[in-house]
């Protein structure tokens, strides 16, 4: 294990350049620590195969593609995203992801990573909603997915800490909580139907409970490579897929409904370490 970790670390160093590796920890080391601190969790250890595969996580390819895209001058304005402010100042990525969603004064609203990326792609690069760069919300090579993988990797191991100082941040979080418990669809599901208890299973899959911050931290650690989809997926896609299973209408990534639920679910993992990028079934 350690040998693999070491070799993957040096591979990472070669691939990204030593300066861009912020966290001294690798995602698998964050995961190992989380498991050690929560020895009773059945959710965290449900897939030994996934834990073994983490050093070779295909999501690292997305991180690499995302960094390239981030630095590349693109769009009608031929600008990179290096001046995009994710909440900690223009171009500051370290620790930005675990402090989203947050209120952005320039946009006058609470944004998650998807909405913020789209905002910067429009304002800095000149893209519109119709351009594939913004229109394609999901997919292994979707621009916003790989950009999220890169930006999120700069928060690996850091505690989730979405700000709740602005009244709109508090309102979106509280609204997300209402939506989490709001039952509808022809099968009467809400998010809580599956995620209000700890250690229960849907078929063979152990479910994370929203009231168990350690399990929940792993659960919301997106982007992650999903083996069952053979693709890197974002938080927005996790929500889309849950609503699909719940028999709800399609929710749009970066929409205010999506931001509200993600505000609530990020707050529920507060203080626990993010595993970024993660690897999931």
């Amino acid at each position: 294990m350690f040998k693999r970790t070491l070799s993957s670390l040096s591979a990472a160093l070669v691939a990204f350049g030593a300066s861009s590796v912020y966290s001294a920890q690798l995602p698998e080391e964050v995961m190992e620590e989380l498991i050690a601190k929560n020895p009773d969790s059945t959710y965290l250890v449900q897939s030994p195969q996934n834990l073994m595969m983490m050093p070779d996580n295909p999501a690292w390819d997305s991180v690499e593609a995302g960094e390239k895209l981030f630095r590349q001058p693109r769009g009608p304005k031929n600008a990179s995203l290096e001046k995009c402010d994710f909440g900690k100042g223009p171009g500051v990525l370290e620790g930005a992801y675990v402090e989203l969603p947050r209120y952005f004064a320039d946009a006058g609203k609470v944004m998650d990573i998807q909405a913020r990326l789209e905002y910067c792609m429009k304002t800095l690069q000149g893209f519109t909603d119709q351009d594939p760069a913004i229109k394609v919300k999901h997919g292994h090579t979707a621009d916003t997915t790989v950009l999220q993988a890169y930006i999120a990797s700069k928060s690996n191991g850091m505690p989730w800490n979405p700000p709740l100082n602005h009244p709109m941040e508090k309102l979106m979080r509280d609204t997300g909580e209402v939506m989490f418990y709001r039952r509808s669809g022809n099968m009467d599901f809400n998010c809580a139907a599956c995620h209000s208890q700890t250690g229960q299973r849907i078929r063979a899959s152990v479910l994370p409970g929203v009231s168990d911050p350690a399990d929940w931290s792993k659960a919301i650690s997106w982007p992650a490579y999903r083996f069952s989809h053979e693709a890197t997926r974002s938080s927005s896609h996790r929500l889309y897929d849950c609503y699909w299973q719940m028999r709800y209408p399609n929710v749009t990534a970066g929409s205010d409904a999506s931001i509200a639920v993600i505000s609530f679910w990020t707050d529920a993992a507060r203080g626990q370490p993010a595993i970024l990028p993660d690897l999931k079934r």
Binding site: M179, R182, N250, T252, D256, A257
Partner: peptide
């Protein structure tokens, strides 16, 4: 706001 976001905001493809 939860009702608004669900039914009026355009967040879901209704």
């Amino acid at each position: 706001l939860a009702e608004y976001l669900t039914l009026e905001s355009g967040s879901f493809d209704l």
